[in-house]
Computed example of a mutant assay.
Amino acid sequence: MSVTAFTNYLLYEKKYAMLTIKAYSKDLDDFQEFIALEHEGQTLQNLEYRQIRTWIVSLVEQGMSNRSINRKVSSLNSYYKFMVKIGDMESNPLAKHKALKATKKVQVPFSEEEMENVIKDLKSETDFEGIRDRLVIELFYATGVRRIELVQLKLVDLDLANKTLKVLGKRNKERIIPLIDTVVQTAKEYLELRSSLEIIKDNEFLFLTKKGVKIYETLVYRIINDYFSRASTKVKRSPHILRHSFATHLLSQGANMNAVKELLGHSSLAATQVYTHNSINELKKVYSNAHPRSKKRE
């Protein structure tokens, strides 16, 4: 019952997305399974830190990455904080836990040249799926939306007259993103082909498969991976890298960080600052090439 109360809290009060809530639930289920086997008779509410630590050690021994372990522990920590908040527990057994050291993943964005090459390649597409894929990629690069946000876009969210897109982000927070002319034109082409589909089952959603049903996340990933594998040698080719490219390219061209924060739907600048690494590297190049004292004088 306490886990159900916790997930309801995440859904109705914290306004978390269903996918996020499912991840929390899965982490708690896995932990309870471990406790049932290793600490028979114990419940989530009467565990001590040393018992929780045996679970953490077991995850390490299984070869799980420190990053994944920290995420699982974070789910459990959020649960315990909730239990303390509602008065069902006096203290959080994870209150003094320190996260495991995790190597920081470097997300390498696509270069502007790679982006241009993919979009140029897409311009040769003329059928429904080809135009749809072009709009998917152009929207990712022109708006920085998340994959789940793109999948959930509805027809009414696209306002071609005002050249804007309404996006429902994390915690049901809405944001309006302006659209550039090339995206508007591709959207018009796509909508014309979309209206010609023989069967449309999920008419309220913007992006559909050729069978007329709402596009799904694995298909979106496959679209990005397929097209960018032709133009990029980068190991990771995903919708998130496109979002990363959007932010990095804006910042490298001098965009205001607060504006980029709003476009991305971040709740704090700290999240947006992750994308400044590559733009700072670009600034260093410009600085090194332009500053009169940056080169040794003979």
Rank of each mutant, 00 (worst) to 15 (best):
N162D: 08
A255Q: 08
A259Q: 09
K120E: 13
E129W: 06
V57T: 14
V108L: 13
V57I: 15
S78A: 08
E282M: 12
L37D: 12
K163T: 00
R194W: 04
L10W: 10
H240T: 04
S2Q: 11
Y216P: 01
R222Q: 08
T43A: 13
S288Q: 13
Y287W: 05
S78M: 07
E125I: 04
V213T: 15
G63Y: 02
A95E: 10
L10V: 04
E138T: 00
F140K: 08
K22V: 03
K98C: 04
K236N: 10
N172K: 11
R297T: 01
K210F: 07
R50A: 11
V145G: 00
Y227L: 05
V260F: 03
H240W: 07
E174R: 11
L44H: 11
T276C: 13
D30Q: 13
V260Q: 07
Y9F: 15
V151S: 05
S124W: 07
L19P: 01
I86H: 09
R67I: 00
Y216C: 04
Y80M: 07
L251F: 03
L283V: 02
N225W: 11
R293D: 07
Q32E: 15
F31V: 14
K210A: 08
H244G: 00
D159W: 03
L160F: 03
Q273W: 14
S75E: 08
S195Q: 15
N225V: 10
F228A: 00
I215F: 09
D159G: 00
Y216V: 12
M257T: 09
K101T: 05
D226I: 06
I223E: 10
T182S: 15
I241H: 06
G63H: 03
I224A: 08
S75C: 12
L150F: 02
Q253K: 10
I224Q: 10
L150N: 06
E189A: 05
L158S: 01
L76K: 10
L263V: 14
K295Q: 10
S229G: 07
L283N: 05
Q152Y: 10
D121N: 05
T276L: 14
G265K: 11
L10T: 01
A142S: 15
N77A: 01
M89A: 02
